[in-house]
Design a binder for these strands. Sequence first.
DNA 1: TTGACTTTCAAACGATCGTTTGAAACATAT
DNA 2: ATATGTTTCAAACGATCGTTTGAAAGTCAA
Lengths: 208, 208
Amino acid sequence: MVEAGSNRTKERILENAEILFAEKGFHGVSIREITTAAKCNMASVHYHFNNKLNLYLEVFRARWVPREKRMYDAFLASLEGEKEPVPSKIVTALARAYLIGPLSDEEHRRHRQLIIREMNTPTEAFELAANESIRPLFETLYNFLKPSLYKGPEGNLIFDIMSIFGIVLYLNYSRPIISLVTGKAYDDTFKTLLIDQMVRFSLNGLNV
Amino acid sequence: MVEAGSNRTKERILENAEILFAEKGFHGVSIREITTAAKCNMASVHYHFNNKLNLYLEVFRARWVPREKRMYDAFLASLEGEKEPVPSKIVTALARAYLIGPLSDEEHRRHRQLIIREMNTPTEAFELAANESIRPLFETLYNFLKPSLYKGPEGNLIFDIMSIFGIVLYLNYSRPIISLVTGKAYDDTFKTLLIDQMVRFSLNGLNV
DNA sequence: TTGACTTTCAAACGATCGTTTGAAACATAT
DNA sequence: ATATGTTTCAAACGATCGTTTGAAAGTCAA
């Protein structure tokens, strides 16, 4: 097996496939478009990934899941190994990791667009992302928040977490709407403000 | 102009186009698929709608916007013409109108899938929906909530409303995730529970 | 019933789709 | 240098895409 040149082509295909799939969706992108962007032959896709669908799934396996893990790790890292951090620290860590986090703006956009497509109309890729990333994050959050919030009615916490997920997801992906109603650009100072607001709202929502 | 038979075909095309566009997206559906479902000839699409893109836009003009208005009206109606309803009544009315509301489950799913695609990667259809529906709803909410919440720091309210939007949207469209993490079906009793939770969380978030 | 107009239809158009083929180019071990 | 296996390539495949065409069917006023 010759790794050097091959892997560079394989990586270029993956990179450009992700960019284009995120922007236009599975059916909105052709293999010709991907291989043109990746500066390689069309047949290379089938040599390295068998077919278009498997290339799409591989984008999630080899790119989406690891990137989600980077954000998850950033979230854990900012909790500095505390066993029972207070809710405000948990929510702040979550907001920072997933609204700013270790990703560039461009990475963030791709990441978000890919998973929102899958949440809207799930395919095999959603099961993959759910099992590898979403469920573990949810369970981590649940276990972190449970000690502080066990007093509430049974089952409330799971909804609270879902609501926080909703806010994070929404604030994160609805940039068009945010620009629409606020008339402001989605820049760094705006994101910082957004995180403050999100934390304030969520902590009030958690009623701590 | 002969209206009778023509309009029935035109309506059948619109109906099936909406179903299929919602489920598979613009590029995921072919005109052949739509006209087969609508039991008419392929050329009828071009006779009534000129081309595929305009059919897609017409789905938003003739179907999405009026349906959104039905929910908006249901929201206003449940406020019973009050000039200054309390926030709990506003949020409850909002949740009921947009999580249960006048729409069937199937209508709700289509409605939500169409707009989420547009929010994720906006086209001309998003501008249409934003100008006709989203912005007016946002402004109505803003004007209703302002009298009760004017005390807070300037600008907070707009973020609070966006957060509530986020929760409603998320709880509404993320049924796959909800089923995933709760293991429960998305039935009527579950929706009622969801509304209670959403109202509780949002009101706490608004800090009233 | 005739005539003008609207609507639907089967058939075909060129373009583009995902995929396959077989040979050329490349890398590595002996 | 040669043999062996890997990777890339141009070219073509059949299938399906959105759109167009021109005629048939349908509708209604005069």
